[in-house]
Amino acid sequence: MHIDKGKCVGCANCVPVCPMGAIHVGADGRATVVVDECVECFTCYRGLSTEHLPGSLIRVLRRLLKLARLRFEPDPDVCPTAAITPDELRWPRTLRREFSDPLERHSSTGMGGRGTAEVKTNELTNRVGEGLAGFVVEFGRPGVGVRLHDVAVATKELARAGVTFETENPVTYLMSDVSAGQLRPEILNEKIMSCIVEFRVELERVPDVLRVVEDVSCRVDTTVAVGVSARCDAHGEDPLKDVLAGQGYKFHRGKVNLGLGRRSNPAAEPTATSRTGGHP
């Protein structure tokens, strides 16, 4: 992303909008994007309304208003001159947008977002089966951002702990050696908004794996958001709750799959993964 200096009038509305703090108004009175800090999330480009006013007109208007001790101040959600301009991205910078702009699809998985459908479609995919726990460990969230070399520190440590990485996850696709959690070397300095490392372990291993997650969280230069999932029993309860509480975790919020999905495409196989008993 860059700011068209010919159009920019330095109103600074784009400055606070940038989640990475990568935009500032320089000595020339025009906004500038710090390219290495920009994660190509398109928040500034897509989130601000645009007026397409000529920059020269605004500059004259501003001088006149200043004479009357008034200030030119557009609404805080407007770029008055539509000065924000996307760049054509090349590999590996394309990764920045894929992991940062939720409307962009990953070239690896064809999906948008930061990870997979997790347990959101579990009644159909059986991604997290009975006796298993699914982990979604998101690096860079909320709004801090992360370099992929920090993610690599974590994936290597998790691989050492023997977790099974989710194969359809875009981070797994970036691994040159999945068994070692090794990310491709040419991407390690890329900065992204966040990415989700997904893996499964047996329920009884949850306390050990949580310790590894806590440990790697202390070693990376970013924030880490942790989520853990499991299947419910016929009474709607899950075995994970007690495991987490036993480890001293406090939790109240979560995503619950109501289990209402079913195979409906004519060519789709009959549901082979539906839980036995109690579930509609």
């Binding site: 699914g134 801090v144 997650v213 806590e214 924030t223 406090k250 939790f251 619950v256 109501l258």
Partner: peptide
């Protein structure tokens, strides 16, 4: 939402949920 609120909503509607994912919050820096 709050997980217990969702469980309660399911019970009132006469069914049980399939899977749950808990947020354990933020770590690191």
């Amino acid at each position: 939402a709050l997980v217990e609120d969702t469980r309660c909503a399911c019970r009132k509607a006469g069914f049980q949920p399939h899977s749950v994912e808990y947020s354990l919050g933020f770590r690191g820096r």
